[in-house]
């Protein structure tokens, strides 16, 4: 059995070598088409990081009634923390508010008014992660409805702008990814089909000498996986070049740099190998009937 498996694996490599020109064409086709997927992944990932950064800047300031004590305010803050997608809520006591006043205006409020009329407040931050649109209005409404909350201040326009574009961008990237992936699947499938078509004589002869379908399929599978891995690695090199080139271009205008994540390599290899196996199986089946 081991001899048979080793023979079949060796057959896969030998077939690849025998048809090396076709193999180079397949690997290039897979590499080029998968590069587009790679670009999409890199752009999507970087945009997502940018959105996360923007979201990390979202903050609401919630003001409580001036008559409320710090301990009463703390209870409301605890309730705010329980709201979904609220990452943190930090209480700013009346004393801290007076210190902020002093640091910003250079005057001590007690010296001016002989009392501290500044209310306790709290700073709310939201979760940054998540692909769906972050809706702040329901959170604001819920906070406003709490007793003794007098005001909520937030950068409503900026948040809605970022979230609206993010959603649009995400839909666009998803649609593009589906189109590119479908194209890639067709390309890989057709490339493999052409390779197999050129070896239909081999399949016929193997069938005549009593080879099982599994025996016939295995070398094609090995070949498909090798071509897939090499194609994916080629796509990784191209995508990495795209990141480096993109960074050089960006450096001329802004300080932002595209991030290269090894996850891209893993995604490309897994996707291509999966489709290479599926494509090989599908294409061989036609000649096995």
């Amino acid at each position: 059995m081991i001899d048979k498996i080793l023979y079949l694996i060796a057959e896969g490599f030998r077939s690849l070598w025998r048809a090396r020109l076709t193999a180079v064409a397949s690997i290039t086709a897979i590499g080029v088409s998968m590069s587009f997927v790679g670009f999409g992944v890199v752009i999507g990932q970087n945009f997502s990081d940018l959105i996360e950064f923007a979201r990390s800047q979202y903050r609401f300031e919630v003001f409580f009634s001036p008559l409320m004590s710090d301990s009463e305010a703390e209870l409301i803050v605890k309730n705010i923390r329980k709201i979904e997608r609220v990452k943190s809520a930090r209480l700013i006591t009346k004393l801290e508010a007076s210190e902020i006043f002093e640091s910003e205006f250079g005057e001590n409020i007690y010296d001016l008014l002989q009392e501290n009329p500044l209310p306790a407040s709290c700073v709310v931050k939201l979760e940054e992660e998540g692909e769906e649109r972050l809706r702040v209005e329901p959170i604001i409404r819920r906070i406003r409805s709490m007793q003794d909350v007098t005001d909520v201040r937030y950068q409503g326009r900026i948040i809605s702008l970022v979230e609206r574009y993010y959603q649009g961008f995400f839909s666009l990237v998803t649609a593009l990814a589906v189109v590119v992936l479908l194209g890639t699947v067709l390309l890989i499938s057709n490339t493999i089909r052409l390779t197999i078509y050129s070896r239909r004589d081999l399949i016929r002869i193997l069938k005549l000498v009593g080879a099982t379908n599994r025996f016939i399929r295995f070398p094609f599978l090995v070949e498909g996986v090798i071509e897939g891995i090499l194609g994916a690695l080629l796509a990784c090199v191209v995508t990495y070049g795209f990141v480096r080139g993109g960074n050089y271009f960006l450096s001329l205008f802004i300080s932002y740099r595209l991030i290269w994540d090894m996850k891209v390599v893993a995604i490309l290899v897994v996707v291509v190998v999966f489709f290479a196996i599926a494509g090989s199986m599908r294409s061989v089946r036609k000649f096995l009937v």
């Binding site: 001899d3 193997l206 025996f215």
Partner: peptide, 11 residues
């Protein structure tokens, strides 16, 4: 040798 590989004989 092909039919013998198909049968599963060793080298």
């Amino acid at each position: 040798a092909i039919p013998l590989h198909v049968i599963g004989l060793n080298i």
